[in-house]
Design a protein around this nucleic acid. Structure first.
Lengths: 344, 344
DNA sequence: CACGCTTGTCAAAGCGCTTTGGTTGTTGTG
DNA sequence: CACAACAACCAAAGCGCTTTGACAAGCGTG
């Protein structure tokens, strides 16, 4: 229950000095600082955050506004990202304010956070095509970092993104090298920027290999397990099913692989399966278990850390490189193999 | 940029009156209230949240402290719970403060949140055996709601929980009625209270049916997909594999079902699979797709809403029923069938 | 008509911190 | 020795809101 006033009275010092001592200002002798720090610890003193926020005008809080998707779902990937970002906030004395909104209220939410002086910065999740958030935030003067990057422009704002195009190009090339020619892409919704870039990488690899990408083999969907299942089954209802499949997320891959097995086919032999792997903790593509999916891996948790760190640097006015590209790692697994028409 | 002072000057009123008008106090004439509200809207006035927090001593913020597990994972279920709770907070003008901590720092985190006056209440996630959080929070005088309930005592604190024991009893009985006698339980870690209750329900049903539960068929693990896979394979390495399997989460069930298929067996025919289904958005056990898992369902999102609502009521000093039991719904699916030894 | 009650308003005192702009000694320099 | 420079500290003024206590005006009542 102690406050600054009481503490300073007890010490026979002014509030100014006590405050400065605790906040590491140089105008305090080392001796008094020791005394103050000790007394603060003894009396279990912790400054009232709200008073500090008011006095400084800084809230030491980062906002994460997460829109509920069409099907009212929060991206399951979110947990891992948050875990990474949250750790960085803790280390730096920042709080994380999470706001769950419906898509149409999202812009309003940012306005409100800003006006109420609730946040010092925000992370923009899941950038979409024609996303209005970056412009709004710039206009409002709210520091922000985009996790991902816009399709329309990649300059003039801070972002942290996986090299999606190249990653999917490499993945596709891996399947091509195994002899696959009919390769399917199970992608996220193309309203999401990452999905657009991934398709471009996929297409580029196909074109480079002298193949023309088949529209019938490219599907976009919300990345749920059932959707992966259904898309896979749909692919095999066509006259020319793929021999290789590239998934945009482990969750889709789970569904796809279930479908393959349900159709009596073997993953890795009859159908090769690759996925982009966010290193989600609960799906951990553990090599230890001997059934790893061949994947391009990039940790979402690490992305969370990186975004958070970048944002805090920006808030501190540090002159930092504000565009960070993360490269995904190739992880060979048991779900890919030579194209069956060549093998047979 | 408008603040109360400016607004009141512009209106020729005192700050008191303007503040009261906006906050719906009765001592203001309807006429001036209209005028104030209108002016506030015009000047885009929004009270500074931090100033208000300081003045009132209330933070209008609910804390969610989530510990990183042993394997540094945040429960993937978390997203859905948060979605539900977040919506309720929004409706009531509350903010959600998310704090990610390592397990050993969790108690300290609560202390800090309280001392800094950062929160009006907290939700306690994933209660464990010998959980010290409820006692600490009671001691600190922080209102809280536990999502789940303690094994040791169910009185003296507010909680919202699924009827785990009964749910698992019913699920087990369903398998028993199908003729299964060797039934396995793939459960969460028994350091979690819910896992203990689920095992008790499972055991009770077995005992009621005159069967003695086989320790070899009961496994506890962190609920990841690979763990489900591995546990399932392990079960079939024993001399007497089960014909029915009950999983504590859809994620485990995914792994288990993958294992079953990998062993060349058919789910629903050779091995019956049931699961507890949290209605996770990204795994939606869609009946639409015709391959639903037989499950006991209870929406985590709904649990989030319920917890949040209860907590806000408690903070408002409403005299409410502080213990809420949610019953899970049975959903018949395609993953269960008559026990094979009877069928053959 | 005098009294108390209600209604609508306001000035001013916090809330607990940070920060500005001193003030006091002490030390170093020419 | 005089003067500047510095180190260490303090009083007081905010930050922008809520809330207390006072007050003036209007009203019905006996």
């Amino acid at each position: 229950m102690a406050n600054l006033k009481e503490l300073s009275e007890r010490l026979g010092l002014s509030q100014t000095t006590v405050s400065r001592a605790l906040n590491g200002y140089p105008e305090v002798s080392e001796e008094t600082r020791q005394r103050v720090v000790k007394a603060a610890a003894e009396h279990d003193y912790q400054p009232n955050v709200n008073a500090r926020k008011l006095a400084t005008g800084k809230s030491r809080t980062i906002g994460h506004v997460v829109p509920l998707g069409e099907h009212e779902m929060i991206n399951p990937h979110f947990s891992d990202f948050i875990a990474g970002a949250g750790a960085v906030y803790n280390q730096n004395g920042y709080d994380m304010l999470l706001k769950v909104v419906t898509a149409e209220n999202e812009l309003g939410a940012y306005r409100e956070l800003k006006r109420g002086n609730r946040i010092d910065g925000v992370i923009v999740h899941g950038p979409m095509t024609n996303d209005r958030r970056p412009d709004l935030l710039t206009e409002l003067g709210v520091p922000f970092v985009v996790h991902g990057r816009l399709v329309e422009r990649t300059d003039g704002y801070a972002w942290v993104d996986v090299n999606n195009a190249n990653t999917f190009k490499l993945a596709t090339q891996h399947l091509l090298e195994l002899g696959h020619k009919r390769i399917a892409l199970l992608n996220g919704l193309e309203s999401m920027c990452f999905a657009v870039r991934r398709r471009e990488g996929f297409t580029a690899a196909m074109v480079d290999a002298g193949l023309s990408p088949d529209k019938k083999l490219m599907h976009s969907m919300e990345m749920t397990e059932p959707n992966g299942y259904e898309a896979m089954r749909a692919l095999f209802r066509t006259d020319m099913p793929p021999t290789g499949v590239l998934c945009s997320s482990s969750v889709l891959a789970l569904g796809a692989s279930r479908a393959i097995r349900d159709m009596g086919l073997r993953v890795g032999t009859d159908v090769s399966l690759m996925t982009f792997d966010d290193c989600l903790s609960f799906l951990s593509n553990g090599q230890a278990h001997g059934f790893a999916t061949t994947a391009m891996c990039s940790s979402l948790k690490l992305a969370g850390e990186t975004c958070a760190r970048l944002l805090l640097d920006i808030i501190d006015g540090k002159n930092v490189n504000t565009q960070i590209v993360m490269e995904a790692d190739f992880a060979d697994g048991a779900t890919t193999g030579p194209a069956p028409d060549l093998a047979s």
